[in-house]
Design a protein around this nucleic acid. Sequence first.
DNA 1: CGCAGGGTTCAATTATTTTTGAACAACAAT
DNA 2: ATTGTTGTTCAAAAATAATTGAACCCTGCG
Lengths: 166, 166
Amino acid sequence: MNTKDGLPASISAIDERLVSFFIDGVRMLGMPKSVGEIFGVLYASPKPLTMLDLVNRLGISKGSASQGLKMLRTLGAVREVNYHDDRKTYFEADVELKKLVGGFIREEIRPHLQSGQKKLKALEKELPKINDPDLREFYEERIKRLERWSGKANLVLPLLQKFLGE
Amino acid sequence: MNTKDGLPASISAIDERLVSFFIDGVRMLGMPKSVGEIFGVLYASPKPLTMLDLVNRLGISKGSASQGLKMLRTLGAVREVNYHDDRKTYFEADVELKKLVGGFIREEIRPHLQSGQKKLKALEKELPKINDPDLREFYEERIKRLERWSGKANLVLPLLQKFLGE
DNA sequence: CGCAGGGTTCAATTATTTTTGAACAACAAT
DNA sequence: ATTGTTGTTCAAAAATAATTGAACCCTGCG
């Protein structure tokens, strides 16, 4: 049974495997399964799809689809596209995983790294309160070490992003 | 109130902040909060601690502490150490975050990448089943793209590990 | 031996995250 | 204005993941 625009109502064997591939992928990035499903179906589709297409193919709710698409758009992994000039919005996957991973780094990792660095700065300010000099030196060393490390992480992220840019 | 070996029963302001730093850190890696707490307390401690010390300081159960320590040992982020030669086992943090991150890459990322690559190989085998040549070419291109990408990811991981080796 | 920690395991509980679906907003067609 | 279609939001329900705590296994010691 086909929908009116000729798309099979349920996903094929190959599509199914691609979807499962991306489910694992996004789970690794700590995102919900539905996001992987959506991206997978879009990645496996030669033509753009609407939200309702996704709902039908995956058997998920409109709510999930809407939220998942929002997340993918924020990451830049999926984009709106003009298609049949009907009033539905069509989506397609950005085939460069750079976008998916890059968006993840930008939206999830960077902010955490930054807030971590702020915490470390704040911590340094507490150091003088420690009376015992040995203990103070100990903490100082450990905190400095974390600062050096997160500085390094900050450097490596853009490179990583560049390198993983298909 | 102090324990018999002079450790404060509850963690100090600085320790608390370090712990919170690591809670965020491990959450980013998708690990349970308790693992971050444990690593944080060990990282903030000038001397090795026993499992029971951790239970007392953090107010977590023996079960959590045991499981958290197991995870951290598997990652190589924490090591057993001889201390007072009593029969308790003492632990200390490996201060090089390389261990924590490296272990994470080794134990979590690599296996997923590999299983992903296996899935892609399997997918390629399905391609000949597609009759429509255009469609077959389409899938072929998309799958090849994923293969190139995960090959690249495989290359970059060891570099990442090296670079983040404090 | 029998007991007293120290440590692990795992089923049950609790906390967190994800998904659903119903209510609603926007807007085009009639 | 009314209706039908597309899409969002958010409280409630369902699914997952983390934590607890009791039962259990060691091992050293009297």
